[in-house]
Design a protein around this nucleic acid. Structure first.
Lengths: 178, 178
DNA sequence: ACCTTCATTCAAAACGTTCTAAACGAAGGG
DNA sequence: CCCTTCGTTTAGAACGTTTTGAATGAAGGT
C-alpha cells in the first residue's frame, strides 16, 4: 500500500490510542477504534489481531468494552460467520455515550454526598462547642463551593447529553459563558 | 473532635481522591488537596503525613505535583521554618490551570497531526492507483470529522480558559448549545 | 455426529505505577 | 562548627492493571 496512506493510518491510530488513555480507557481500545474508523470495510477479530499485533484474547475483551461504550458495533457480513465490527463514526455520539455512562454517575453521587454532608453539619451544629462551630461553618462554606462546582458540571453534562443528533461545529460556535 | 465533622471530612477527602483519579491524577493528590481544602490553617508536610497516614516522601512528591498544577501553594507561617501549604479554593481556577497545562497541548498537537495528514494525503493523491484513491478519499472524510471534533474541543477550551475570574453557577446557566 | 472454525474466559506473567524507608542534603540554632 | 530539624531523592517493594496463551465453549458445515 502507499506510504502516505500507511503513515496517516499509523499516526491516526497512535493518536486515538493516546486519546483513549487520556479519557481513562486502555490504549488498545483507542487503537482498535482507530483501526476500525479507518477501514471502509468491517474488520474481524483476526483482522484486528493481525493489524495491531496483539493477542486474540485481548482483541476480544477490548472489543467488548468498545461495544459497551457505544464506540463500535457488531455488523453482519453475509456469507461469513466471523464476527465483524465497525466503528461508530460520529464522535459526538461517542462522547455522549461515554459521558452518559461515566461522568453522569460520578457527578450525581458527588452531589448526593455533598448534600448529605451539608445536612449532617446542620444537624450537628447545636451540639458543638464554639471552636467546633467555627470549623463547621468553615466546612459549610467549602461544601457550598464544591456543590456550586458540581452543579455547573451537572448542567454542562445535561446540556451536552440533551443536545440532538448533530452537535457540529457551527452549532457550538454559539456557546456562551457569562 | 465531633463525629459529624470527622465524617464529613473523611467523605470529602475520599471523594476528592476519587475525583483526582478520574482526572488522571493520583488518588493521594486528591486526598492531600481535600485535606488542605478542609483546613482553616495551612498544614505542614508532617501534618499531612500524619493525617493521611502516608510516608513523608510521598507527601513531598505529591505536594510538588499539586503545586505545579496550581492546586496548592506554599505559604509562610511566621516563626515556623517548616513548609506550609494551603489549597487553591477556587475550583474554576484549578480547572483552568489543569486544562491549560494538559488538554490544551493535547488538542493543539492533535490538530497539528490531523492537518499534516490532510496535506500528506492531498499531495500523494496524484500518484495513487484507483483503489488507493478511493481509500485516500475515505481517509480524508475521517480526517475532516476528527478535525471538526477537535476544533469544537479547542473552542470550548478557549472559552473556558478565556473566561474571567468567576465562572460561577448563575453565569453558566446561560450556556447555550445550538 | 463429528470436525473445524471462531470467540470467550481465565490463570499466570509482564508491565507500569506508586509507595515506602532510608540515605542524602540543606539550613538554622546553639 | 557541630547538631538538629526538615525536605528531597532514590532504590526497592508492593500493588494494580493489562496481555498473553491455553483451555473451554459454541456453532456451522459435511
Amino acid at each position: 500500500m502507499d506510504k502516505a496512506l500507511l503513515a496517516v493510518n499509523e499516526s491516526t491510530v497512535a493518536g486515538l490510542g493516546r486519546l483513549a488513555r487520556f479519557f481513562g480507557f486502555s490504549e488498545v481500545m483507542g487503537r482498535l477504534y482507530g483501526t476500525l474508523l479507518l477501514s471502509p470495510e468491517p474488520l474481524s477479530l483476526d483482522d484486528l489481531m493481525e493489524r495491531l499485533k496483539i493477542s486474540k484474547g485481548s482483541v476480544s475483551m477490548n472489543m467488548r468494552a468498545l461495544e459497551r461504550w457505544g464506540m463500535a458495533k457488531e455488523v453482519w457480513v453475509r456469507g461469513e460467520r466471523k464476527k465483524y465490527y465497525e466503528a461508530e463514526p460520529d464522535m459526538w455520539q461517542v462522547i455522549r455515550s461515554v459521558l452518559n455512562g461515566r461522568e453522569r454517575r460520578e457527578v450525581q453521587t458527588a452531589l448526593q454526598v455533598l448534600g448529605d454532608s451539608v445536612t449532617r453539619l446542620q444537624k450537628a451544629e447545636a451540639a458543638l462547642n464554639p471552636e467546633e462551630k467555627a470549623l463547621a461553618a468553615f466546612y459549610l462554606e467549602r461544601m457550598d463551593d464544591l456543590q456550586a462546582f458540581f452543579q455547573v458540571a451537572n448542567l454542562a453534562l445535561e446540556t451536552i447529553l440533551g443536545s440532538g443528533e448533530s452537535l457540529d461545529f457551527d452549532a457550538v460556535t454559539k456557546i456562551e459563558i457569562g
